[in-house]
Amino acid sequence: MADLASFVVILFVCLNFYSLCLTQDVPSKQEILPTVVIEKLFEKMDTMQKRIEQLENNEKAMKQSIINLIGTDAQLRIKIQDLVCKVDDSKNKDDINDSVVKTSDIGEDAITKRSRTKRQFSGTVAFTAYLDHLVKVGNDQPVVYNRIILNEGNGYSNNTGTFRAPVTGIYMFSWAVTARRLSGQHAYDVWVKLMLNGSHMTGTVAESRQEADDNQGSNTAVLRLIKGDEVWTAHYSSAPDIYGDDNERSTSFTGALLFQEEEDIDPIGK
Rank of each mutant, 00 (worst) to 15 (best):
L131C: 11
G153C: 02
M62H: 03
S99M: 09
V87G: 03
R147F: 04
Y145D: 01
K86Y: 09
V135M: 06
R116P: 01
Q185I: 05
T160G: 00
T168E: 06
S99P: 01
I67F: 04
N146W: 00
Y171W: 09
S115K: 05
R147M: 05
S115R: 14
K86T: 05
D46P: 00
I78C: 06
A74N: 11
S99C: 13
F121G: 07
S90L: 13
N92V: 10
Q54G: 04
D189K: 09
Y130N: 10
Y171N: 07
N139G: 04
I70L: 12
N58G: 09
N58S: 10
I170Y: 12
D95P: 00
I170R: 05
I96K: 14
D140I: 03
T47W: 12
D189G: 08
L83W: 03
G155F: 00
K79Y: 12
D88E: 15
R180S: 07
G123V: 02
V135E: 11
M172Q: 09
N68I: 03
D98E: 14
E53H: 04
A165C: 13
R114S: 06
T72F: 08
A176G: 14
P142E: 02
K60F: 04
R116I: 07
R164D: 00
R114L: 12
I67V: 14
D189C: 05
A110F: 09
K102Y: 15
I96E: 11
A179N: 14
R147K: 09
P142Y: 02
T178Y: 07
A61W: 08
G155H: 01
E108H: 10
V167L: 03
K113D: 12
W175H: 14
I170C: 13
G71L: 08
E56R: 03
Q120A: 04
D189M: 05
D105L: 15
V137A: 11
A74S: 15
P166A: 09
Q141L: 11
R114M: 15
G107Y: 01
S90W: 01
K44E: 06
R181H: 07
Y171P: 12
M45C: 06
L182V: 03
S122P: 01
I96N: 13
M45T: 08
M45Y: 07
T128K: 09
A61I: 10
D88A: 15
Y130E: 07
Y188I: 01
A187P: 02
N158I: 03
G107S: 03
M172L: 08
E152V: 01
G71R: 09
C85E: 15
S99G: 02
Q120N: 08
V125K: 10
L41Q: 02
W175P: 14
V137M: 07
Q54H: 09
T47C: 04
M48P: 00
M62Y: 06
R114K: 07
F163L: 00
G169I: 10
R119S: 14
S183W: 14
T117W: 05
F42T: 06
I66V: 07
S174P: 03
Q49D: 04
K118M: 10
V167D: 05
E108C: 02
K44N: 08
